[in-house]
Nucleic acid binder design. Structure first.
Lengths: 220, 220
DNA sequence: ACGAGCGTCGGGAAAATTTCACGACGTTGC
DNA sequence: GCAACGTCGTGAAATTTTCCCGACGCTCGT
């Protein structure tokens, strides 16, 4: 490991996975893992203190998730190179991540070579997307599935978020200081815009698009 | 690695994670990883040919999932020792896994020592549950949250499954050869039994209990 | 054998929700 | 200035959900 090695910060809440990263990356000359974090807040702290050349980050993590961590790091350093490495084989997540400022998106099902290749690409300033996500993105294009984030107005999006999180129409109305009737109207309009017929389809769509994560199920 | 080493089969669809397992386990004397699989079907095949002392298995995998793989292996060999190692910090999954015949359930957020400890426990014939899941199980007990699988009759469960998968009440009625009215009645009864007020809560509950997985979102 | 209990199936009617049509108001952009 | 649009709300119709009920068949304990 020479002084000219590219420095890397690993972020993943699963220690065994970080172990796996290390094992794969250390076989590669020119790379050096200099720090590890297990959540977004820690990642941000370590980014500031270590100023690594590259961050490899998972998306689903307790507390501050990956997307938000990307946003914060980028806000601080516009040139930050962040590669998302996640289990979510989901075009919606990829779009969100890239928009937040990530420079790459690779799924964990990818063979180690794909990860290494993506690391090199991002370090060289290129955008790296793993083939399966390319395919997902193509499919969602072809299917013409409306992306909730694009089609909905801010207010509608807010209502959708609350619908997925809170319980009743009345509670949401109170939170938003509008009449329950308005919430019902928006609810109906949202389903219309997204082209779903039932609430169950709505939740499934939200899941696919990464608006709701399985780990968000908090109130158990 | 002596001839008396305990042999292990690793099952996880993320190659980097398998890399991590190996890295952790090979530091441990007396253990030897003899095979790796990336889905349930391959796991079953390799179990038959390799007859390992222990299987370490992920839950969410393409095609045949972890639970089903446990069931098959156990059906073939009642003495099979299977340790579930997964990201799902979810009491519902743990219950399902143990009922299917797994001998242990450890989350990926656990430190490597916990995994190693669990491996030893299961090899010694003990049941191993990681502390966070113990806690989850305790909580779900205390909250008295009804487990869908327990509280619902077979027919109700079937309707729930279809509600989560299909689209309209009428379609389900047709599939089941009953009147839409019956489906609506069952739907209402299910929500009552599970103590949820809306379809959205219903889906969230199903998600928490592992009845629906993010990867099941097929029809995108 | 028999009644109690339960799962399944559905009808009827009331209650609640969803949907649709419509109007008002403020902002933005041309 | 005015057209387009987002937001908020009303009223009435359409639909769904819920609740109450009865029927049928099965199992189980006595």
């Amino acid at each position: 490991m020479s002084a000219g090695d590219a420095t890397i910060l690993l972020v993943d809440d699963h220690s065994v996975v970080r172990e796996g990263y290390r094992s794969v990356l250390q076989k590669q000359p020119g790379l050096r893992v200099v720090a590890e974090a297990s959540d977004g807040a820690e990642a941000y702290r370590l980014y500031k203190s270590e100023a690594p050349d590259l961050v490899i980050m998972d998306l689903s993590m307790p507390g501050i998730g990956g997307i938000e961590a990307v946003r914060r790091i980028r806000q601080r350093d516009k040139g930050a190179k962040i590669l998302i490495f996640t289990m979510h084989q989901n075009a919606g997540f990829a779009v969100q991540a890239i928009r937040a400022g990530a420079r790459g998106y690779v799924t964990k099902t990818s063979p180690p070579e794909t990860l290494v290749r993506a690391v090199m690409d991002v370090l060289a300033g290129r955008i790296a997307i793993s083939p399966d996500i390319d395919h997902e993105l193509a499919l969602s294009r072809l299917a013409g599935e409306s992306s909730a984030a694009d089609v909905l107005t801010p207010r509608e999006f807010e209502v959708l978020r609350l619908l997925l999180a809170e319980r009743t129409t009345d509670e949401i109305a109170e939170t938003l200081h509008v009449s329950p009737k308005t919430v019902a109207n928006l609810h109906s309009l949202i389903k219309d815009k997204l082209g779903v017929g039932s609430d169950i389809e709505l939740v499934r769509l939200a899941l696919r698009q990464g608006l709701l994560t399985q780990v968000d199920l908090g109130d158990a």
